[in-house]
Design a protein around this nucleic acid. Structure first.
Lengths: 352, 352
DNA sequence: CTCAAGGTTTTGAGCGGTCAACAATTCTTT
DNA sequence: AAAGAATTGTTGACCGCTCAAAACCTTGAG
């Protein structure tokens, strides 16, 4: 706080890159008291009677010397690090950033910190990082869009994880419902020739989402032509992802009046590509996205999409994890959240 | 690895949320050896002669018992946590995600982990989190778009920080150059009536970028009309940011043929708004963005923008920080990176 | 047979905290 | 005034790991 102590605090460390702040012992010595006493006071341990005068004296000194307890030491002793690990496939853009936002808010509110690591869908890295998280004392793990293989010795919540793994709570979207929203919308607009993007095989949601679409299409009597189904394979989180898809679709020569994109990002790329073929959206082709990312409301045309409550998914995952860390027993049941259809401008009546 | 040990490893913990894995001591006991010996072997401490037989025995047992050293304990002892803290204004979307990507890659490669915390530009939180980072043993801090106030007792690298603070290395863009690229481009296309967005006051780059524009405009003889300068104030990282700006500009009734947006995100919102006024881009108004985010190449029209090497900025910041942590002395000098002009479709000749 | 040299393993302190148990002092109480 | 209770503070072990120094074993040379 005060300018005066900015110079102290910086000691010449024995090794570079190592900062030693004043320790409890030093603080206690400076006060002529015992470390334990100081510890008790600074932690407001209940049921210990220490005169107010001493308490004040200790707190004043702690403040003056700018004492910062070592969470490291405390964690070691208390076996409680207030830290969790977050696994994501990728940093940078992507739907996970919104989820992270929900997670971060909740965690920080609860006094927890978190490590993040990205694994680019490599199983080896996923394993390594979980181990390292635990080695660093993570008390729980949130895995976003991550294929976990083995049980993990701390509570785990998987966002968009689908496999049942002992000890892992899955938080996932109701993909069946999402498929209904998508196809009912298109069907009611008269679309019968619909092209589809399937997600990359490494993306956790791909399969479930596809299964949902297939089931609902069947129910509605929509025929899915295999040539009009394109599977994404590139590991990208930019609109580039959806661009070549359209080229592939055009190459088939088959007519289609609507395109179900895997997500908003790829929808943006697809729209860009369709426009490069001089097709109008939604005049010639309707495009529907998925996720409802922030940008979806501001594209040209504004994107019709299936909204996932991403931040909320993050909160739910976090709450669930914290509850388990604090003793709630693990329940096998998945937690499902509901999608919503957001109709904007990129879908319209099918061209005759 | 093996299925067999998945059940062990999980002990009934004394407290919920606390996982005890096998400790060095236990491992040593199991081997009939001393913890120190085991430690030496597992860390491959050079200059100690231990027979190969023992080494193998130890490594085998470590593997079999799935021994994971406690980084916590090790850090405490070694005074080296291999951890840094990253401060960002916001999780979720934003240009910082790209910077983070550059940071994350480098850090993980170097064996470091990182905490992230977001402060929403609140000075109190910025202070608190830096303190907590240090309490948790962070050996350095990277602050992205964050107004630091006080010196910090560990090495700090600020991305897009502009104030000179003792001990803080600033990594920043050459904003003068960026302004030149922007205005020369527009000027050469014949634009004379140009509208500007100024960044929010809490955004670190706002001032520098504005100063650059003012200086270059003067040099080129471009008159900046104060009514055509709109200052952003909302704390958003979505295109919504740039939408109301256009409404404000239109309300002035003054003509303008070009708009210099604060960044790509706000440019997207602005374009959306201009289209809602039935203006064509770039026919009626040219729009130039800033950052060159991934989506900029896929908007309609594709965005002309000033490219910042975001991931590279992240790497540079990280390298600089690691060097300082490993003993490089702090140099006062800022590190400057150069912007580039990327011409796409959102700018064109000025309408007569 | 003794001793130095070398290889191999153990000892013990300490990193910075916390906690249960204990000691020293003052305040009641009968 | 002596015993008991309450107040205030201290002691020492421990969390899991590392490191310097010490101790224990073999050898081989003198």
């Amino acid at each position: 706080m005060s300018e005066s102590d900015s110079s102290k605090g910086r000691k010449d460390s024995p090794r570079p890159g190592v900062y030693r702040s004043v320790s409890l012992k030093e603080l206690a010595a400076h006060l002529g008291l015992n470390p334990a006493t100081v510890s008790v006071v600074l932690n407001d341990v209940p049921g210990r009677s220490i005169p107010q005068a001493t308490r004040d004296r200790i707190k004043a000194a702690a403040h003056e010397l700018n004492y910062q307890p070592s969470l490291l030491a405390r964690s070691l002793r208390n076996r409680r690090t207030l830290t969790i690990g977050i696994l994501v496939p990728e940093l940078g853009d992507g739907y996970h950033t919104q989820v992270m936002s929900g997670i971060g808010d909740q965690l920080i509110k609860a006094g927890y910190f978190y490590f993040t690591a990205h694994h680019r869908h490599k199983p080896k890295l996923i394993d390594d990082y979980t181990r390292m998280f635990i080695g660093r004392g993570a008390q729980g793990i949130i895995a976003i869009d991550t294929h976990l293989e083995h049980p993990i010795p701390v509570p785990v919540v998987a966002v968009a994880g689908h496999r049942p793994i002992e000890g892992v709570t899955n938080v996932l979207l109701d993909h069946r419902r999402a498929a209904e929203l998508t196809l009912h919308h298109l069907h009611s607009l008269g679309h019968r020739h619909i092209a589809f993007m399937r997600g990359q095989s490494f993306s956790s949601d791909s399969d479930e989402r596809w299964k949902g679409l297939v089931a609902v299409a069947k129910k509605l009597g929509i025929v899915i032509q295999s040539k009009l189904v394109v599977t994404l394979d590139r590991d990208l989180t930019t609109p580039e992802l959806g661009y070549p898809v359209v080229q592939q679709l055009m190459a088939t020569g088959l007519p289609f009046t609507a395109l179900v994109a895997f997500n908003d990002i790829s929808a943006m790329g697809a729209i860009r590509a369709l426009r490069d073929y001089n097709l109008s959206i939604p005049g010639d082709v309707s495009v529907i996205g998925f996720d409802n990312i922030k940008a979806a409301a501001f594209t040209l045309p504004r994107l019709t999409t299936i909204s996932q409550p991403l931040a909320e998914i993050g909160s739910i995952a976090t709450q669930t994890l914290l509850n388990r860390i604090h003793g709630a027993t693990y329940a096998k049941d998945d937690i499902t959240v509901e999608p919503e259809l957001v109709v904007r401008e990129s879908t319209g009546p099918a061209k005759q």
